[in-house]
């Protein structure tokens, strides 16, 4: 998954969780939870969305790798290779 594909996927998922979130303004290395004011339920919903769209199980231990857009791109990009 390219960085722009990642951004689009995350934006689609977040549109249902936090409609007012403007992901285009979030830097790749910024913590999404801070930048978009996501609480733990929001983040779980984001993980749920990523799981449903990619089929990856995403164990809890991997959550820290999903805190940034760059991290998400790396996490799913690695799987596609």
């Amino acid at each position: 998954m390219t960085p722009s594909e990642t951004k689009r996927l995350v934006a689609e998922i977040l549109a249902a969780i936090a409609p007012e979130a403007d992901i285009s303004a979030v830097a790749g290395d910024a913590d999404l939870r801070e930048a978009l004011d996501l609480d733990s339920i929001d983040f779980l919903n984001l993980v749920t969305g990523l799981h449903e769209r990619t089929g990856r199980p995403i164990p809890e231990a991997d959550y820290p790798r999903l805190f940034t857009l760059d991290g998400i791109a790396g996490y799913f990009g690695a799987a596609a290779d």
């Binding site: 733990s40 339920i41 779980l44 993980v47 749920t48 990523l50 799981h51 449903e52 199980p57 995403i58 164990p59 809890e60």
Partner: peptide, 17 residues
């Protein structure tokens, strides 16, 4: 919670709350 969640997909996971 960690033990419960390890066996579940994200939609069924529990939060500390």
């Amino acid at each position: 919670l960690t033990r419960i969640n390890a066996e579940r997909d994200p939609p069924a996971r529990l939060l500390p709350a």
